[in-house]
């Protein structure tokens, strides 16, 4: 809809998965899993309203459609948004609270290695107890993690990759590192469970 959707599609293509861009309810219904890309969370919120996608999206969350939310996408999937705009909605697909622009403005944006810690049962073939290189751009932070939520990666002891059942969220942008598709592969493993 708005944001880095094309780069996510390239990552899925490398993982051997077909994808479509979702701008209306019919397209959403045709999906087996959904990625909500980074972009401006306030804009994505508004476009969901404008394109009458809000109800369909809430239904998809209810029906446990597997979802990966990166950066702005994570904000949309969270329970509560601190520092959001008044008309901004979050869909409570994962039991976390988030803070917008937690890691500052663009001049503070950075890339760094993060500690990955994914249960081997999820994806035994992947190097999941290692480091992952991550790009944070005006990134949101996770201010509260619910009991049912697994933290799969941390940066400076803060959660940056979380999972609850069929939903995964990241503060950072895995689609900006085309050499490493592990986050997308993890999501496919989660979606196929």
């Amino acid at each position: 809809m708005q944001g880095a959707f094309a780069l996510h599609q390239e990552a899925l293509h490398r993982c051997g998965v077909e994808s479509v861009q979702v701008r209306n309810a019919d397209q959403l219904l045709s999906c087996d899993a959904l990625i909500i890309p980074g972009g401006e969370s306030t804009v994505i919120s508004k476009m969901l309203k404008a394109n009458c996608l809000e109800a369909a999206f809430a239904a998809a969350v209810q029906n446990k459609l597997p979802m990966l939310g990166t950066c702005a996408g994570m904000i949309l999937l969270a329970n509560e948004i601190e520092d959001g705009t008044p008309d901004q909605t979050s869909f409570g697909a994962i039991d976390i609270d988030v803070t917008r622009n937690f890691y500052g403005r663009q001049v503070d944006s950075f890339e760094s290695a993060i500690e990955l810690n994914v249960p081997p049962s999820i994806a035994s073939k992947l190097e999941t107890e290692a480091q992952l290189h991550a790009v944070f751009i005006r990134a949101p932070g996770v201010s509260r993690v619910g009991d049912a939520v697994e933290v799969w990666a941390t940066y400076d002891n803060e959660p940056v990759l979380c999972r609850q059942n069929q939903v995964m969220v990241s503060s950072f942008h895995p689609e900006l590192i085309p050499e490493d598709d592990r986050v997308h592969q993890l999501f496919l493993a989660v979606a196929n469970q």
């Binding site: 708005q2 880095a4 959707f5 972009g39 401006e40 751009i137 900006l176």
Partner: peptide
């Protein structure tokens, strides 16, 4: 360049 990616479609 990453931030410019986030502006796409906007």
């Amino acid at each position: 360049r990453g931030l410019a990616e986030m502006f796409k479609g906007g």
